[in-house]
Structure formats: structure tokens, C-alpha cells
Amino acid sequence: MEVKSTTKYVRLSPKKARDVAREIQGLPVSNALDILTFTPKKAATLIGKTLKTAIADAENNYSLDTNTLVVKEAVIGAGPTLRRFMPRAKGSAGPILKRTSHISITLVGSAPEKKPKPARKAAAKKTETPAAEPAAAEEQA
């Protein structure tokens, strides 16, 4: 069972939030909360709130055990950008981009299954038999 929780229009740059989100992917919920608690970034508190919401949804709406929950994915998407302008020298203006983010966290009831990667085949190219080349030369003569 997958449980998904989303927080939209967070006033934080997606680039800054993705660094924190990558740290918790694939971890059990308890470890992810510990990492977010001790990470000194604004993104950690906002992602932590979204993670706690997902945990509460899993527990109350789907009756899942919180000890077996694992963070399947933590995705930070770009939200709308507020565009402002700052006056500059000689009557010009410089743009200011106030970026927003959408935080989405997916939890799974147990450890996600890892698919085995198929074995790579040898990339050795086989050349044509040398007997075929002289036969073609005799036909042209």
C-alpha cells in the first residue's frame, strides 16, 4: 500500500529543497525523521511536516503499522514563480525571482522490492566469414 502526501506552494527554492529530499529516499520513516530533525535547513522542517502528515495518513486512514513504513520517494517539484523588480542604477530595473515548490512524499508499507538488473551481454561484434568476401570478388571479375 502506498501513501502519498503533498504540500503545495511552499515559499522555498526547489533546488535547495532537493538536496534534503535526496537524503531521506529509501530510508525507514524513523531514520528519515531523525535526519530531518538534525538537518539545519529550512527545507528540512518543511519536508518533515509533509513526512509527518504522510505517516498520520498511513496510520489513521489505511491502518498501516508506522514501524514498517519506508520512504519510497521524496519529490520536490517547481511551483509558480513570483516575479518582482528591484530598481537599479540609471533608471533600469533588475528582476527578482521568488520561487516556490511542491513537496510530495510517498510511503510504502514495507521495504520496496529492488528489481534485479539484467546481465550485460558481451558487446563483441562478430565479423563476417572471410570466405564470403572472395566469392563476391570472383563474381565481379
Results as ranks from 00 to 15, higher is better:
R88A: 12
S104M: 05
E23N: 02
L107F: 06
A136F: 11
D19E: 04
R22A: 02
T6D: 04
T7I: 03
G79H: 09
G94D: 09
K126C: 08
E128Q: 12
N31Q: 14
L107S: 07
V70G: 03
P95T: 02
E139A: 15
A136L: 12
R84H: 09
K72Y: 06
N60C: 01
A131L: 10
T6G: 05
A136V: 12
I35R: 03
G79K: 09
A21V: 00
E2I: 02
F38P: 08
E138L: 15
E139Q: 15
L97W: 02
Y9I: 11
Y62I: 01
I47T: 01
A74G: 07
R88H: 09
V10H: 06
V71I: 15
S13N: 07
R120Q: 14
K16S: 13
D19L: 07
S92F: 02
V3W: 01
A21D: 00
T37Q: 11
T45A: 11
I96W: 10
T81C: 04
T45W: 08
F85H: 01
L107H: 03
G91L: 06
Y9G: 14
A131I: 10
A54W: 02
K16P: 12
E138W: 14
E138Q: 15
M1C: 12
S92T: 12
A123Y: 01
I105W: 00
T127F: 09
F38W: 07
A56H: 05
K41A: 05
L27M: 07
L46M: 15
F38A: 04
S110A: 15
S30A: 13
P116I: 13
P130M: 09
A137D: 13
L64N: 05
L46S: 13
A89Q: 10
T6R: 09
F38Q: 04
R120T: 13
F38V: 02
P14G: 06
P87K: 08
A123D: 10
A123V: 04
E2F: 00
V10S: 04
S30D: 15
L33G: 01
M1I: 11
K90Y: 14
A111N: 11
A56V: 08
A111I: 06
L82C: 04
V10I: 09
N67L: 08
A54D: 01
L107W: 06
K121A: 12
M86H: 06
T7G: 05
I96R: 10
F38K: 03
A111H: 06
T127L: 14
D65M: 01
A141G: 12
P14L: 07
L12V: 06
P118T: 11
A124Q: 13
L64Y: 08
L27E: 07
D65S: 03
D57I: 06
A43H: 00
D34P: 02
T50K: 00
D57H: 11
F85C: 01
A136Y: 08
